[in-house]
Nucleic acid binder design. Structure first.
Lengths: 194, 194
DNA sequence: CGGCTTGCTGAGCAACGCTCAACAAGCTAC
DNA sequence: GTAGCTTGTTGAGCGTTGCTCAGCAAGCCG
């Protein structure tokens, strides 16, 4: 049916690393438009210009593939959120919160897809997401110099869910100024952890 | 392989309503153990003792089937949360919150599966969940006699996310007494909406 | 019994995840 | 330059799953 043997593609050979990166990249680009579970191997292979079989050479299973994609998305966000080295502790949470809002503003679609895909369905994917949240809680607890109790952990986690939802909603329909939003989030976190 | 034509099942014929209800019921029972997307038509049909084809007679598509299941789950919870008629308004939110905690305590697995399945993947299923949340926000705004602004709506929605996460965590590992939890949730909601 | 409604089935198609044996691109060794 | 090795790459094909369709049969009516 489809002329897969186009004459202008003389069988390009890539290094293993390159190919892997390319496939993950394609996954990242597809994420916003396609629910994770509906992402088909066929489609990814087609976009990469390779056969289905090759994808299974790099990722033994479909699940393995899209957990890799999810992890890549998480890493991108994490990298963006992390404070510049040397930032004084009391400014770290402040800055991360600010950058998180910026992240959601910029990559609204992608971020929503990430959160959705992570929360729903597959446990493996959910785990990647949970790791990220746990790391965020970790940072919050240490830089705010809070006691590392189960209670505090739960409160910060719940606050994260609160922040995520509010920022998502706010990005879709701004009901206050950006500084007001940030102040509100900080305020709630402050009250909760005291 | 499987002897599907057991002699002791002399082709039982059910009314359309009964069959539909049975199929949805099976879906509800399967939900806690099976991520929504992994729920296969084959399995459901097998448990119901019918052919795959019949399921497609009642639900034109798989999606239609498990949105029906999700909606049934949402209705069950909603029914449980609704205050008894005649309850004075100032006690309604109080009672619903209490019953919600109870609901999560009792059906932790099922509820988690519901939230997960709803948040993730399929937009149609997500819609069912969003409806429920919207209805909850509606009730909260009216019984608390709050102005129905976009801002208030967002805050209550975000608080719902907060409550959901905290209650879920707390049910898994109780870090405070039940009344303390309820008081905390009420307090946060109260501060937010003022 | 004949005829009607309607719950119900089996065969089969297309799409998808996944396997496997084999091909071939690019490098090194002689 | 050609023999040989490594390894990126493919095509054919299998099992499962969502979905279709033509037709069977259970129960009811006359």
């Amino acid at each position: 049916m489809t002329a897969s043997s186009r004459p202008d593609h003389p069988r390009l050979r890539r290094s293993a690393g390159d190919r892997r990166a390319q496939l993950v990249q394609i996954g990242l680009e597809l994420l916003p438009t396609t629910p994770v579970q509906e992402l088909t191997i066929d489609e990814v292979a087609r976009q990469a210009g390779i056969s289905r079989s090759l994808l299974f050479h790099y990722f033994a299973t479909k699940r393995e593939y899209y957990t890799a994609v999810t992890r890549a998305a998480a890493d991108l966000m994490w990298e963006h959120l992390m404070p510049a080295p040397g930032t004084p502790p009391e400014e770290q949470v402040e800055g991360m919160l600010d950058r998180y809002v910026g992240w959601v503003e910029t990559f609204r679609e992608t971020h929503l897809a990430f959160v959705r895909g992570a929360a729903g369905g597959d446990p493996w994917v959910a785990e990647v997401y949970q790791e990220t949240r746990d790391r965020l809680v970790e940072v919050a607890l240490t830089t705010l110099e809070l006691p590392d109790s189960a209670l505090q952990r739960q409160l910060v986690l719940a606050w994260l869910a609160f922040a995520e939802e509010l920022i998502g909603q706010w990005a879709a329909e701004p009901t206050m100024t950006r500084p007001e939003l940030l102040a509100l989030l900080r305020d709630v976190l402050g009250r909760l952890t005291r």
